[in-house]
Design a protein around this nucleic acid. Structure first.
Length: 892
DNA sequence: TAGGAAATGC
C-alpha cells in the first residue's frame, strides 16, 4: 500500500459513519480492512518517512464498519472485529515499549492514541451477534481488563499514562453492551443469562457509586471518564434478557419486578432510569411468552401494566406513536391467550389507547392481532377467513387520504398461516385468494419470502396431485418478483430445497428435468450475490438420496455420490445413510470403511451425538457386511457407546435387530478371537438380564444364530449347545423371537463343514442328533451341511472309513425325517467318491445311492455332475440305470 | 435499546 492509497483509505474512512446500507458498509469495511491489514508495511514505511499513521480512530471506524455489516454471519463479524482489535493492541503495546526513553523518532509511539474504549465497546457488541457460541467469559474478561488497565494507568505519574486511563475506562455503553451480550444469549436458557445480565446491572451500579465517591481525582484532568450513569437502556436490556429467557411466568414476573424498581427509582428522583414505553412493551412481551396455562393470568398482568403506563403518561411527553407498541404487545398477549372475547378486548385496547394518548391510532401490528383474534386459534372456518381478509384489504386499500394502514405483508402472512393450518377443505383455495389480494394491494403487501415459504411448505406436505407444479409456479413468480426489485421476495435455500424435495419425490415425467433447472436457478442466484441461497446439507442430501435411489446402483452414481460427499462442508447422518445405501450395493467393503471412520469420529468427538435410528442401523449394517475383525469390534464399540448415551437420554435408537447386527459382524469376521468376543458381548447382556435388569436389550434368534456361526467356525460345539440351552431358557422366560429354529443348527453346521477340523464329521453328527432331539425333525439344509462336513475333513484311511460311516448315519437320519433332497444325494455320492480309493468300493457305495435317488425322483444337476466324475466303466453301468429310470427333464 | 410471520432431507 502506497502513501496515497493509505491517504485515500483515510479520507474514505472519515466519511464512513455517515454511510448507510449494507453494500456500502461492506465496501467501507473492506477498504478499512485492507488499510489495517497492510498496516504492518505502512508502519515500516512510516518509520522511514515519519508521516502516515493509522490511528485509533481509523481502527475504530474499521471495526464499526464490520460490526454494521448485516449480510454476513455473526461469527464472521466477531472474528473480523477481534482481528482488527488485536492488530491495534499489538501496535499500541509495541509503541508504548519503544516510547520509553527513546525520543529519537518524533513520529513514534508517543503521539499514538492507543486502544480506546470505543473499540472495546464495538468488540463486545460484535460478540453478541455470534450465535451458538458462548463468549460470556471472553466478554466479561474484556470488561475486567479495561478496568484493570485503567486502574493501573491511573496510578502512574506520567501524564500520558493517566490520559490513557481515562480513554480506556469502561463507560455506560460498555456495561450496556455486556448486558446486551447476555440478553442476546438468553434465548431459552431459562434465565441463566438473564441473571447474568442482572448481575452486571448490579455491578454497574456499584461501580457508578464508587466513581462518584472518588470524584475527579483519579484520572487527573480527564475526570469526565469517571462519570458512569445508568440509564433506561441499561434496565431495558435486563428486561429484554428476562423476556427472551424462555423462563415462562417466573421470568416475566422477574422482568416486571425490575420494571417496578425502575418506577421506584423514578419516584425517588432518578429521572433517567424511569421506565419508558419500551420498558413496558418489553415486559408485556415477556408475558406473551408464558406457558399456555399461565396466559389468562398474563393478560391480567398486561392490563395492570397499561394502568401504570397511562399513569406515567400523564407526567411525560410520550406521543401516541411512542406508546402504540405497548398496546400492541398487550393485544398480542390477548390473542395468544385465545380468550373467546379477544375481538372485543382488542377493540377495547384500541379505544383505550386513543382515549389516553392524543393522536394515537392503531397501526399494522395492532391490525395483525385484531385479524388473528377474528380467525381464532385452531384454524379458521370459511366465514372468519372472509372477515379477516376483508378487514385487511379494507384497511390497506388506498382512499383519497391514503390507506388507513400502510400496506404490509405481515398481517396477511399471519392470516395465511392460520388458514394453512386450519381444517377447512377450502384452505388451499383461500390461500390462493389471499395471495391474489396481497398482489392486488401491491407494494409492501405483496407476497414475500414468508408467504412463499408457507405456501411451498404447505404444498410439499399436501397430497394434491399437482402440488409440485404449483410449487414450481410459486417459486417462479417469487424469482420474478425479486428480479423486479422486490427485496422482501428474496429467495433463500429453504424455498429451493423444498421444491427440489418435492420434485425428487414426484412421479411426473418432467420432474428430473425441472430438478436440474431448479439447481441451475439456485446456482445463478448465488452467482448474482444472493447469499441466502447456498446449496446446503439438505440440498446435497436430496441429490445424493436421488442418486442412491436409482436402481440398479451403478459405479458411476456411486462415484458422483463420493465426489459430492468430498465437497460437502457439513455432511450429517442423513448424508451418510444415503452414501452407505449406494456403496453397500457397489462396494460393501468401502461402505464399511466409511461407516468405520464416521463412527470413530462420532465416538471420539465431544460434540452432541448426531446419530439417529435409521442412520445407526445403516452404519451397523455396513459394518456387519465386512469380513474385517476391526469392523466387528467397531460395531460392538458403537453399540455400547450408543447404549451408554441412551441411558443418559432415554432415546429410542437401539433395538434387538440392531443388537443382532453386532453379532452378525462377528460371524463374518475371519479371526480366531471373533467367537470369543461375540460370546463376551452376549454373555454380558444375558448376565445383566439374569441379575434382574429387564430393560436390557437382547438379540433375537438372528443374533444368536450369528453367534452359533462363530462357534461353528471355531469348532466349539459344546459352547454352541450351551447357547442353545440358554436360548430355550430365555424363550421359556417369555422373551419373544428367541426360540431356536432349524436355522440355528444349520448355523453351527455350515461353518463346521467349512472348517478344516479333523473331528468335523463326528461333531456334525452330534449337532444333527441334538437337532432331532430338540425339534423332532431335520431340515435339508442342516442335513446337507452335516454330510458336507464328512467329505471335506478325513485324512487317513481309518478316518475316511469313519467319515463314510457317519455320512451314512446322517443319511439314514435324514431319510427318517424325510429331509433328503437332490443335494443330499449329490453330497452323499461326492462323499463316497472322495473317501474311497478303489472302484469296487466306490461302485458298491454309489450304486445303491443312485438307485435310491432315481427312485425318489431326486436326480439333480449335482448328482449328474458327481456321477460324471466316475471313470468310464462305472459311468457306463450307471448310465444304463440312469437312462432307464430318469426322465429327460430331471437330467437337465 | 421494544414489538407481528414460515420452513425442507434418509
Amino acid at each position: 500500500m502506497s502513501e496515497s492509497d493509505l491517504a485515500k483509505s483515510r479520507s474514505f474512512m472519515s466519511i464512513a459513519p455517515e454511510m448507510e446500507g449494507t453494500s456500502r458498509a461492506r465496501r467501507c469495511a473492506k477498504c478499512c480492512w485492507n488499510a489495517c491489514t497492510q498496516e504492518g508495511r505502512a508502519t515500516m514505511w512510516k518509520e522511514k518517512n515519519h508521516e502516515v499513521v493509522i490511528d485509533a480512530e481509523m481502527y475504530n471506524v474499521c471495526m464499526s464498519a464490520w460490526n454494521g455489516c448485516d449480510d454476513v454471519d455473526g461469527e464472521t463479524i466477531a472474528r473480523r472485529v477481534r482481528s482488527v482489535m488485536t492488530r491495534m493492541e499489538e501496535r499500541w503495546h509495541a509503541s508504548r515499549r519503544c516510547s520509553g526513553g527513546d525520543d529519537d523518532d518524533a513520529g513514534g509511539g508517543g503521539d499514538d492514541d492507543g486502544a480506546h474504549r470505543v473499540g472495546y465497546n464495538i468488540l463486545i457488541d460484535s460478540y453478541a451477534k455470534w450465535n451458538d457460541n458462548d463468549s460470556s467469559d471472553v466478554v466479561e474478561s474484556i470488561l475486567a481488563n479495561m478496568n484493570a488497565s485503567a486502574d493501573d494507568a491511573a496510578k502512574s505519574d506520567d501524564i500520558t499514562e493517566r490520559a490513557y486511563a481515562s480513554r480506556i475506562r469502561p463507560d455506560g455503553v460498555t456495561y450496556n453492551s455486556i448486558m446486551n451480550y447476555h440478553a442476546a444469549r438468553a434465548y431459552a436458557d431459562r434465565g441463566r443469562s438473564a441473571q447474568r445480565a442482572e448481575d452486571v446491572l448490579l455491578r454497574m451500579s456499584e461501580e457508578a457509586s464508587k466513581r462518584r465517591r472518588l470524584g475527579g481525582d483519579v484520572d487527573g484532568d480527564e475526570s469526565s471518564s469517571l462519570h458512569l450513569r445508568m440509564d433506561a437502556t441499561s434496565f431495558n436490556t435486563v428486561l429484554k434478557a428476562w423476556g427472551k429467557s424462555g423462563g415462562g411466568m417466573n421470568a416475566a414476573k422477574r422482568a416486571e419486578s425490575v420494571l417496578r424498581t425502575m418506577m421506584r427509582l423514578r419516584d425517588e428522583g432518578h429521572d433517567d432510569v424511569g421506565p419508558d414505553p419500551i420498558s413496558f412493551s418489553t415486559v408485556m412481551g415477556a408475558y406473551s411468552r408464558v406457558d399456555a396455562e399461565d396466559l389468562a393470568e398474563a393478560v391480567d398482568r398486561a392490563m395492570a401494566l397499561l394502568d401504570d403506563l397511562e399513569a406515567a403518561g400523564t407526567t411525560t411527553s410520550w406521543s401516541g406513536e411512542d406508546v402504540a407498541p405497548c398496546y400492541n404487545a398487550a393485544a398480542n398477549v390477548v390473542v395468544r391467550s385465545g380468550t373467546i372475547d379477544a375481538v372485543e378486548r382488542i377493540e377495547g385496547l384500541m379505544n383505550r389507547m386513543r382515549g389516553n394518548f392524543a393522536g394515537a391510532r392503531p397501526d399494522c401490528r395492532m391490525l395483525t392481532s385484531y385479524v388473528a383474534a377474528h380467525v381464532g386459534g385452531d384454524g379458521s372456518d370459511d366465514e372468519s377467513f372472509r372477515r379477516g381478509k376483508g378487514l385487511l384489504v379494507e384497511m390497506m386499500t388506498t382512499r383519497e387520504a391514503g390507506p388507513e394502514i400502510e400496506p404490509d405483508s405481515i398481517p396477511f402472512n399471519v392470516l395465511l398461516d392460520r388458514v394453512l393450518k386450519g381444517k377447512s377443505p377450502n384452505r388451499m383455495k383461500h390461500a390462493d385468494e389471499l395471495m391474489d389480494a396481497m398482489e392486488g394491494i401491491g407494494g409492501n403487501a405483496r407476497p414475500d419470502l414468508t408467504t412463499y415459504s408457507m405456501m411451498i411448505g404447505a404444498l410439499s406436505r399436501s397430497t394434491m396431485e399437482d402440488s409440485e407444479q404449483k410449487a414450481v409456479d410459486h417459486l417462479r413468480s417469487m424469482l420474478k418478483s425479486y428480479r423486479d426489485g422486490y427485496q422482501k421476495a428474496k429467495p433463500d435455500s429453504f424455498v429451493f430445497n423444498c421444491v427440489i424435495g418435492m420434485l425428487s419425490r414426484s412421479k411426473q415425467s418432467w420432474a428430473d428435468n425441472v430438478i436440474y433447472r431448479t439447481l441451475m436457478a439456485m446456482e445463478s442466484q448465488q452467482k448474482k450475490g444472493n447469499t441466502s441461497v447456498i446449496p446446503d446439507t439438505i440440498t446435497y442430501n436430496m441429490v445424493i438420496g436421488k442418486l442412491a435411489q436409482t436402481s440398479p446402483a451403478t459405479k458411476e452414481n456411486a462415484k458422483k455420490v463420493m465426489d459430492i460427499l468430498k465437497n460437502m462442508e457439513n455432511p450429517d447422518i442423513i448424508t451418510y445413510t444415503n452414501v452407505l445405501k449406494i456403496q453397500e450395493k457397489v462396494n460393501p467393503q468401502k461402505a464399511s470403511d466409511i461407516a468405520m471412520s464416521y463412527l470413530e469420529r462420532a465416538i471420539s468427538s465431544s460434540d452432541r451425538v448426531q446419530v439417529d435410528r435409521l442412520g445407526f442401523q445403516s452404519l451397523l449394517f455396513a459394518l456387519s457386511r465386512s469380513c474385517s475383525m476391526e469392523h466387528a469390534r467397531m460395531a460392538r464399540k458403537a453399540w455400547e457407546w450408543m447404549e451408554k448415551y441412551e441411558k443418559a437420554k432415554k432415546g429410542g435408537v437401539l433395538d434387538s435387530n440392531l443388537c443382532n447386527l453386532v453379532l452378525v459382524a462377528y460371524s463374518k469376521a475371519n479371526d480366531a478371537m471373533a467367537a470369543e468376543e461375540a460370546l463376551l458381548f452376549l454373555s454380558e447382556r444375558i448376565g445383566r438380564y439374569n441379575k434382574g435388569d429387564r430393560t436390557v436389550l437382547l438379540p433375537t434368534v438372528v443374533g444368536f444364530s450369528a453367534t452359533l456361526v462363530s462357534l461353528g467356525k471355531a469348532n466349539r460345539v459344546d459352547d454352541a449347545f450351551r447357547l442353545l440351552d440358554i436360548m430355550n431358557v430365555l424363550h421359556r422366560d417369555g422373551i419373544p423371537g428367541i426360540e431356536p429354529d432349524d436355522g440355528c443348527y444349520t448355523s453351527i453346521l455350515g461353518p463346521l463343514a467349512q472348517s478344516e477340523a479333523a473331528n468335523a464329521a463326528p461333531q456334525a453328527l452330534r449337532v444333527v442328533k441334538r437337532m432331532k432331539e430338540d425339534l423332532g425333525s431335520l431340515s435339508a439344509a442342516a442335513l446337507n451341511a452335516a454330510i458336507n462336513s464328512c467329505a471335506r475333513t478325513a485324512r487317513d484311511a481309518i478316518a475316511k472309513r469313519k467319515a463314510i460311516d457317519i455320512a451314512f448315519i446322517l443319511f439314514h437320519l435324514g431319510r427318517e425325517s424325510g429331509a433328503c433332497d437332490d443335494i443330499t444325494y449329490g453330497l452323499m455320492i461326492r462323499t463316497c467318491i472322495r473317501l474311497t480309493d478303489d472302484d469296487d468300493t466306490r461302485i458298491k457305495l454309489v450304486e445303491p445311492l443312485f438307485k435310491l435317488c432315481a427312485k425318489s425322483g431326486l436326480v439333480g444337476r449335482m448328482v449328474r455332475g458327481e456321477v460324471e466324475k466316475l471313470n468310464n466303466g462305472l459311468m457306463h453301468q450307471i448310465r444304463v440305470e440312469w437312462t432307464s429310470n430318469v426322465k429327460d427333464d430331471q437330467i437337465l
